[in-house]
Design a binder for these strands. Sequence first.
DNA 1: TAGCAGATGATAATTATTATCAATGACGGA
DNA 2: TCCGTCATTGATAATAATTATCATCTGCTA
Lengths: 165, 165
Amino acid sequence: MTEVKLLGGQGRGDYAQARLAEFVANCRRKKMAVTPQRRAVLRALLESGDHPRADRVYARVRREHPHISLATVHRTLERLCEVGEARKVTPLHETARYDGNTRPHHHVVCVRCKRVEDLEAPEFDTLLAGRQTLGEFHLLGCSVEVRALCHRCRKRTAGRSPSAA
Amino acid sequence: MTEVKLLGGQGRGDYAQARLAEFVANCRRKKMAVTPQRRAVLRALLESGDHPRADRVYARVRREHPHISLATVHRTLERLCEVGEARKVTPLHETARYDGNTRPHHHVVCVRCKRVEDLEAPEFDTLLAGRQTLGEFHLLGCSVEVRALCHRCRKRTAGRSPSAA
DNA sequence: TAGCAGATGATAATTATTATCAATGACGGA
DNA sequence: TCCGTCATTGATAATAATTATCATCTGCTA
Ligand SMILES: [Mn+2]
Ligand SMILES: [Mn+2]
Ligand SMILES: [Zn+2]
Ligand SMILES: [Zn+2]
């Protein structure tokens, strides 16, 4: 029953160190230039445990790199996601998407064209069934977002990096 | 194993009819005015099976109500979500949120303050474990988003409508 | 160390969403 | 059925996130 649990910020420091240490090698592998800005953005992201927005990362990076451009922060964050060094919590954030179907269900999203299809997966729903709370959170519901490539996009995307785990 | 399946647009027509039929009564119950615009927006949303954006709904509604304002469409869609007549597929769409933690994990999101915390739930991951595809979709990964109210927000939200299932 | 492809910074442009506010009309009570 | 009230609408402006542009700079390879 207690299969689901919140993760505190434990071991964040070590994790950040390890990730920064391997960053240079990873960049070389991906043939991506290692710039002070990229390093700083990744460090700032790793130091914030709270899934920050670009402006928060910008604020933090500026403490060490007062001359960095906000555009660079945006570009770098997207780049880090493309190469698998970071993750976008909000793959569909560009515009609000609405759904007239109020029955509980889940979604599969094409990460490229952003097409969204309904998905039925009853098992997902039962996992939180008993619980009312999770730590300090009062539960309302849960939805699963399956990241995928639709047929059309898969053909066009041929050889590509992760961009979504 | 085949517990997860895509839902086609079957029975959409009947579902739409039923929803529209009960809409007036639901509005009365919620003490919300029934306007032609609201009815039209809900109809347009129900007719689009594809999780549309506000501008798509606007385009469709204009076919019958050429004078409707785009602002009204935005307002109405949000309103419908508040009272449980529709659902926002993208509760975190306002701004991109990034995550330096690349280990597979899930999230709990406070629907009010948008705080995001990491969540560990191994069972969620195993459900799609075997599959490579789902219908025409090539699977990449899946993430669970648990909607919740954090302690602080729960106190401040006292008596409130659904806004999230 | 030279040269180039890619990265950056400054800035403008784009675009979704929200705010404002006067005019309108839905609806409960007379 | 008519009226007054107040929520809703439409038109428009304001806001804010993101992306585009482009001249300059710099990490990287040979
Ligand atoms: Mn749906
Ligand atoms: Mn996370
Ligand atoms: Zn696609
Ligand atoms: Zn909260």
